[in-house]
């Protein structure tokens, strides 16, 4: 009987602790066993190997039997390790808990409360190895995230603009320089790639200011018509507003402000990069065309 057990005196009635505490009525301390320790280590090695086989096989596109088998065998090996480890590390306990309706009876008070049961002092390395391998295994099961999407190639580095691609409206009709009047703006797309997000372009007709460097003047048509990527370089919103009197492009999301007469460099707000300018010219039929893809990164930065 534990000295600290409250209300354990002879003849005491129901004790406050009796409802929640357990009493050990049988306790068997396992004998130290090298065989058992070897089993734990062996199972942990298998589980560790499987923790590597599963993600690697999945990544290499090996058959289901390989990665599925790795996952299955790993889980089973981990089960063996946990079981063998606990059998040796803790005493086998039989405990009695009084049901709510009854107080602990006299014979129970002579037993040890379960909170006094201690772990068997054994090799602590085994426990650490178990936790380590279990953690490794848990991490390896997360490798399924690689299946959620394709491996990125150059999608983010390029857009749909090609040499000779006409600038068309959302309805797909090509534009002549005269279609954008003084102080006018139009959202345009490459022919054949209407509504492709990263290819949206703002066509701006400057009125009271002439474009000057860092604007690439070779890509300006009629001396006042310039084209910039519409995707804000801060957080990727469409730069939707044009203030004619000072030729300013303005993003409604976080108020990044670009000077359309000076290569759309940022003049205010949170963005750090200019809107890329579209290489633009007029083809033989008199329609606006691109000379090629943007030469700078379109839209926000990526890692």
């Amino acid at each position: 009987m534990s000295e600290a057990d409250p209300g354990a005196g002879a003849g005491a009635g129901r004790t406050t602790d009796a409802h929640s505490d357990l009493y050990v009525v049988g306790q068997e301390v396992p004998p130290p066993s090298d065989v058992n320790d070897t089993l734990v280590v062996g199972a942990l090695v298998v589980a560790g190997v499987c923790a590597i086989v599963f993600p690697v096989a999945l990544f290499l596109g090996l058959p289901l039997v390989v990665y599925g088998g790795g996952l299955a065998v790993g889980l089973l090996a981990l089960a063996v390790a946990v079981r063998r480890y606990f059998i040796a590390a803790y005493p086998e306990i039989n405990a009695v808990q009084p049901r709510e309706s009854a107080a602990a009876s006299e014979d129970l008070r002579a037993s040890t409360p379960v909170s006094d049961v201690r772990r068997v002092a054994r090799r602590s390395l085994l426990g650490r190895a178990l936790v380590g391998v279990a953690g490794l295994f848990g991490l390896s099961t997360l490798s399924f995230v690689a299946s959620l999407g394709p491996k990125p190639s150059d999608e983010l580095a390029r857009t749909s603009w090609r040499p000779g691609a006409r600038l068309v409206t959302g309805e797909g009709s090509p534009l002549r320089p005269a279609d954008v009047g003084i102080g006018g703006v139009a959202t345009v797309w490459p022919e054949g790639a209407v509504l492709v997000e990263d290819s949206a372009v703002l066509l701006v007709r400057l009125s009271n200011r002439r474009p000057r460097p860092p604007t690439n003047l070779d890509w300006v048509v009629d001396e006042t018509l310039v084209a910039y990527s519409k995707i804000c370089t801060h957080a990727g919103c469409p730069v939707g507003l044009f203030r004619e009197q000072d030729s300013v492009l303005f993003c409604p999301c976080h108020q990044s402000t670009f000077d359309a007469a000076r290569g759309a460099i940022p003049t205010f707000g949170p963005t750090a990069r200019a809107l890329p300018q579209l290489p633009m010219d007029v083809d033989d039929a008199g329609f606006l065309v691109a000379l090629g893809d943007f030469t700078e990164q379109v839209g926000p930065a990526y890692g």
Partner: peptide, 27 residues
């Protein structure tokens, strides 16, 4: 009727249940 005899949640039943989870996952 008044008491229940068995394995305490920690450590005995904990390891039974953990093993069971792993076995189930494996199987």
């Amino acid at each position: 009727h008044r008491q229940v005899l068995g394995k305490p949640l920690w450590p005995s039943q904990f390891h039974v249940s953990t093993t069971l989870v792993l076995w189930l996952g494996g199987v």
